[in-house]
Design a protein around this nucleic acid. Sequence first.
DNA 1: ATGAAATCCGATGTACTCAA
DNA 2: TTGAGTACATCGGATTTCAT
Length: 352
Amino acid sequence: MDELLLQLALGDCSSSFNMEKAVCNHGLFMMSPNVWIPSTKSLYRPLRLADSSHSLSVTVSHPPNHPFLVIKVHGVHSLPSADEAAILEQVARMLRISSKDEKDVREFQTLHASAKEKGFGRIFRSPSFFEDAVKSILLCNCGWKRTLAMAQALCELQAQMANAQLQPMGVKSNSNRKIFTKRLKHSSNSESSRSKFDQSRGNFPTSTELAYLDEKYLNKRCNLGYRAQSILQLARKIENGEIEESCDITSHDKLYQKLMKVEGFGPFVCSNIMMCVGSYKRIPSDSETIRHLKEVHGKGKCSKRTIQKDVEEIYSKLELVEEYEKKFGVLSELDSASYHLVTGSQQSALRE
DNA sequence: ATGAAATCCGATGTACTCAA
DNA sequence: TTGAGTACATCGGATTTCAT
């Protein structure tokens, strides 16, 4: 089997970087197509090439005491430099390897000494803004099990699109969308056009891939409910340039406002996305956060309103991970089959 | 104008009935 | 006892409605 090894220099981050802490601190690492391999402390998933339509699977790991990450690219023995750059860029985004990220982590840990002790602060994210945004919606109005199922369904859908090699170019009108969707439906069992890229596992879909789909089909196929509409709205807004990720801090408020305008995007989802982008101004607090404060801190009165202004909340985020680990063992060593159990409130978890 | 409370959504879970 | 079938409750952000 062909393999290509790449290196990503840690630079400023080399002293503080811890692979396990950088990945297993957020539910995102359990969601498809991410696969965490506890035994080797490495992360496996497909990443996009420079053309962003093809993907290759990679395994990212950190050899102890080395100032760089090793990225094993599967299925090829060499790549054009543009593709190598694209892969490195995505890995850097996921694990927050940049001077700016390192600065953020240090600032945060100065504020909270306990975070520094625990090595908490480098919050895991996706290789793309779109994936972060969609996964944030998947967290809403449903249990954790369903969140995982929806993410997986989206990846399986992407695999099918990639294997069928359907070209979505120039199908922006409604009627063409239907035709495209129809072709996709009929492609389900065709093994015909397998390219040199192994697309069988499926990557997370891009905004381009989703924008051309019929809403009803997307909903039915991935069991998304009302989220299908929200996701498509977002995908189309990104496609026509209305919304774009910006690293510029001054435009963060604007991005937040734009996200709030998408139907189905409320404060929780948008704050969550902003945190991924690198703006920690607003703290996403969900029912799990509230439950945590109630149970662990005995704050019976705690509700949606009292929680938002409390700076203490930041602490509770840290503690939430610790509490889970008390219940389920160290998250990074958890078997992927048990991911759906990880929540404090669900009955299925308590029965164990 | 503020913010509390009711309602929405669809999958999932629970309690109960009835037939074989 | 087992299974199918039904009705109803639950979940939890988002959104709308309503009261102050």
